[in-house]
Amino acid sequence: AKPPKTVTVKVEVTNADGETQTRTVTLTNLPKDLKPGDTVTLPETGQTARIVEITP
């Protein structure tokens, strides 16, 4: 079996106070056609994050 493909992405997350924070997260099994501006759900927090940058 192939190991899951991990991708490092820079995302913007809005916290409970309405502040936008930029975080770098490593995600696995992202859709192939994901692009900056799309939103993903962070598995560890369940927060919705907007992708700023994808590092191949």
Results as ranks from 00 to 15, higher is better:
Asp33Asn: 11
Val9Pro: 00
Val11Trp: 03
Thr48Lys: 07
Val40Glu: 00
Ala16Leu: 08
Thr24Lys: 05
Thr41Phe: 15
Pro56Leu: 14
Arg23Gly: 03
Val7Cys: 06
Gly46Trp: 03
Thr55Gly: 12
Leu34Phe: 06
Gln47Phe: 06
Gly18Pro: 01
Asp17Ile: 08
Ala49Val: 13
Gly46His: 04
Thr48Leu: 12
Val13Glu: 02
Pro3Gln: 05
Pro3Ile: 04
Lys32Thr: 11
Thr6Gln: 12
Thr48Trp: 06
Ile51Cys: 02
Val52Thr: 04
Thr48Gln: 11
Gly46Leu: 04
Gly18Met: 03
Asp38Phe: 03
Asn29Cys: 07
Thr24Asp: 06
Lys35Pro: 00
Thr24Pro: 01
Thr6Leu: 10
Asp38Glu: 03
Arg23His: 13
Val7Ile: 12
Asn29Asp: 12
Val25Ala: 03
Gln47Val: 05
Thr48Pro: 12
Lys32Leu: 12
Lys35Val: 07
Ala1Lys: 09
Thr28His: 12
Thr45Gly: 06
Asp38Ser: 04
Gly46Glu: 04
Arg23Gln: 12
Ala49Trp: 09
Thr8Tyr: 09
Thr14Gly: 03
Thr55Asp: 11
Thr55Ile: 15
Thr39Leu: 14
Glu53Ala: 09
Thr20His: 05
Leu34Val: 11
Pro43Trp: 08
Glu53Met: 07
Lys10Met: 11
Gly37Thr: 01
Ala49Gln: 00
Leu27Asp: 01
Ala1His: 13
Thr20Ser: 08
Thr8Leu: 10
Val11Asn: 00
Leu34Lys: 04
Thr55Tyr: 15
Ile54Phe: 08
Gly37Tyr: 02
Thr41Trp: 15
Gly37Ala: 01
Ala1Met: 13
Pro56Glu: 13
Thr55Met: 15
Leu30Asn: 06
Lys2Ile: 13
Thr14Asp: 05
Lys35Tyr: 06
Thr22Glu: 10
Thr26Glu: 10
Thr6Ile: 10
Pro56Arg: 06
Leu42Lys: 00
Val9Ile: 11
Asp38Ile: 03
Glu19Ala: 10
Arg50Tyr: 14
Glu53Leu: 05
Asp17Ala: 11
Pro3Leu: 05
Val11Leu: 06
Thr48Cys: 09
Thr39Ser: 09
Leu27Glu: 01
Arg23Ile: 15
Pro56Lys: 08
Glu53Phe: 07
Asn15Gln: 07
Thr24Leu: 14
Pro3Cys: 05
Val52Trp: 02
Lys32Glu: 14
Ala49Arg: 00
Pro31Leu: 13
Lys10Phe: 06
Ala16Trp: 09
Val7Pro: 02
Val11Lys: 00
Val52Asp: 01
Lys5His: 14
Val52Asn: 01
Ala16Ile: 09
Val25Tyr: 11
Ala49Pro: 00
Gln21Arg: 07
Arg50Ser: 06
Thr45Val: 04
Val9Gln: 00
Thr22Ala: 05
Thr24Gly: 01
Asp38Arg: 02
Val25Gln: 02
Thr48Asn: 08
Asp38Ala: 04
Glu44Asp: 15
Asp38Asn: 03
Arg23Lys: 14
Gln47Trp: 06
Ala16Asn: 08
Lys10Ala: 03
Thr39Met: 14
Arg23Asn: 04
Pro4His: 13
Leu27Pro: 00
Ala49Ser: 02
Lys5Gly: 09
Thr55Leu: 15
Thr26Leu: 11
Thr26Tyr: 12
Thr28Ala: 11
Thr41Lys: 08
Glu19Leu: 11
Lys35His: 06
Arg23Phe: 15
Val9Asn: 00
Gly18Gln: 02
Val40Met: 10
Pro36Asn: 04
Val9Trp: 02
Pro31Gly: 13
Gly46Ile: 01
Ala1Pro: 13
Thr8Gln: 10
Glu12Asp: 04
Pro4Met: 13
Thr8Lys: 08
Thr24Phe: 14
Thr20Lys: 11
Val25Ser: 01
Thr28Phe: 10
Pro31Gln: 13
Asp17Gly: 07
Ala1Trp: 14
Thr26Ser: 08
Thr48Met: 10
Val7Met: 13
Thr28Glu: 10
Arg50Pro: 01
Thr48Glu: 12
Thr6Phe: 14
Leu27Met: 09
Leu30Phe: 15
Arg23Tyr: 15
Val11Ser: 00
Leu42Gln: 00
Gly37Val: 00
Pro36Val: 15
Leu34Asp: 00
Thr22Asp: 03
Thr45His: 03
Asp33Thr: 08
Ala16Val: 09
Gly18Val: 01
Pro31His: 14
Ala1Gln: 12
Glu44Gly: 13
Gly18Arg: 02
Pro3His: 08
Leu34Glu: 00
Lys2Arg: 12
Lys10Trp: 08
Pro43Gly: 05
Pro43Asp: 08
Thr20Ala: 07
Thr6Ala: 12
Pro43Phe: 06
Val52Ser: 02
Thr14His: 06
Thr20Tyr: 07
Asn15Val: 06
Val9Arg: 00
Leu42Asn: 02
Gly46Ala: 03
Thr6Glu: 10
Thr6His: 12
